[in-house]
């Protein structure tokens, strides 16, 4: 049974991962990413990390992938990408070669190495306690300062995102005057303007 669960979720993980790096359409890549994340969540459950499996599905599949899809749809970049163009000559083959070398090295370490280190004493698994209980106990004792620092990190992230994504009025005008090709023309805006003009004409007549 365990072997079946592992094989099934490993296939999900690897199939999703190959879907991400080989897919042409970004939307399909994002959906393949969901497949991988679910596979990893199943593996978490089989490793008795139930809380992390739930967080994995909620945060990754629920929030991060939705954010990806939102950006893809918002910017309308869900066109298939031409994978044959290779602006940097030989980049693809060099990338694959480096990837194979990296994979061989990592697998060598995993298969030839032995896991050293005794079972932990300090943060040992409390017998019978749920993993949520144990994680929260550690989080608010041993890892209290890192935990508080992550809240600062999240605030910085939010402020940075707002600053980066905001369209500054003065900058926009400058770009418009210089090279109008570079600005992002939303087709919906043009349609709205046409509708407005039509409505104004109707009112005038």
């Amino acid at each position: 049974m365990q072997a079946f669960v592992f094989t099934f979720s490993a296939l999900l993980v690897l199939g999703g991962a190959f879907g991400v790096i080989l897919g042409k359409n970004p939307v399909r890549c994002a959906l393949s990413l969901v497949l991988t994340l679910f596979g990893v969540a199943i593996l978490f459950i089989s490793l008795e990390a139930n809380f992390l499996a739930a967080v994995q599905v909620i945060v990754y599949a629920g929030a991060i992938v939705v954010l990806f899809l939102f950006v893809i749809m918002l910017l309308g970049v869900d066109k298939a990408e031409d994978l044959r163009t290779d602006p940097l000559v030989g980049q693809r083959w060099a990338g694959i070669a480096i990837g194979v070398l990296l994979g061989a090295g990592l697998l060598f370490v995993v298969l030839k190495g032995t896991i050293t280190g005794a079972s932990s004493q300090g943060a040992a698994v409390i017998k019978g306690g749920s993993d949520v209980n144990q994680i929260s106990r550690l989080l608010f004792t041993t890892y209290l300062y890192p935990f508080e620092i992550t809240s600062v990190l999240l605030i910085i992230g939010v402020v940075g995102a707002v600053l980066l994504a905001r369209r500054r009025a003065d900058q926009d005008i400058e770009i418009d005057a210089d090279e109008p090709v570079d600005t992002f023309d939303d087709p919906a805006d043009a349609e709205l303007e046409e509708l407005h003009e039509a409505a104004e004409k109707e009112v005038a007549s």
Binding site: F6, A10, V13, L14, A17, F18, V20, I21, G23, P26, C29, A30, L33, T36, L43, L47, F68, V71, I72, V77, E81, P87, Q91, R92, A94, G95, I96, I98, G99, V100, L102, G103, L106, L107, V109, V110, L111
Partner: peptide, 27 residues
């Protein structure tokens, strides 16, 4: 599990090297 993690990491790194779309590099 460690081997699967290594393979998954390799696939991600290879994809980062061969893809050009910033969104997919991010994935």
């Amino acid at each position: 599990y460690l081997g699967l993690g290594a393979v998954l990491f390799t696939i991600g790194a290879t994809g980062l090297l061969i893809r050009r779309n910033p969104l997919i590099m991010f994935m």
